[in-house]
Amino acid sequence: MNRPRHASGVAGASVPAPSGTARWALLHASRFLWCLTGLGLAAFGIGLGADAAWLILAGVVAFLTGASVSVPVFLGLLWIARTGEGWNGEALMPRTRTTRRVNRRVIEALETAARTAERGTDQLRQAAMAMDAVQEETTLHNDLADAVNLAWVTAADAGFDLRARLAAERNGER
């Protein structure tokens, strides 16, 4: 057949393909823009603080690759999948896993609180014993001894309460 060459192209391909130089320029312009985006992301992430660690990382990776959109996006998705949180700490994946994580934090906090409260109770016991020694010498400070004893009892109550809460959290009752 003797069809003219200009009619044999893809239908609607009226835009001429860019020449080699133009393609090179386009590619490097897009890379340059992507690098700028990466720098911006990283700066934004640093401005937000340690919460936005993945944002900083994504920005740096974007800057370094200079081309691939998929890498930082992949890192971001990985972060979301790992922690279930967005860059602002909001819950993006409210699932059992997040609940469990919260539960673990609750148990850790209660453990610390219970332990320190018990130490405080012990120290208050020592203070109360010291006040007993004071009372053996003089009756002038009986009111103080009462105050210290009251603080001791209150601390013991708080410690028991914290232990009970800890046990309940561990059993999943509460």
Binding site: T112, L124, Q126, A127, V134, T138, A151, A155
Partner: peptide, 27 residues
């Protein structure tokens, strides 16, 4: 003796204060 005992009580109360503050923080 009373002074010594009071001093011990002050010490115990101070330590207890610090402990309770540390217990309050995680909560």
């Amino acid at each position: 003796r009373a002074v010594a005992a009071l001093e011990a009580a002050v010490w115990g109360l101070r330590e207890a204060d610090v402990s309770v503050i540390k217990a309050v923080q995680p909560l």
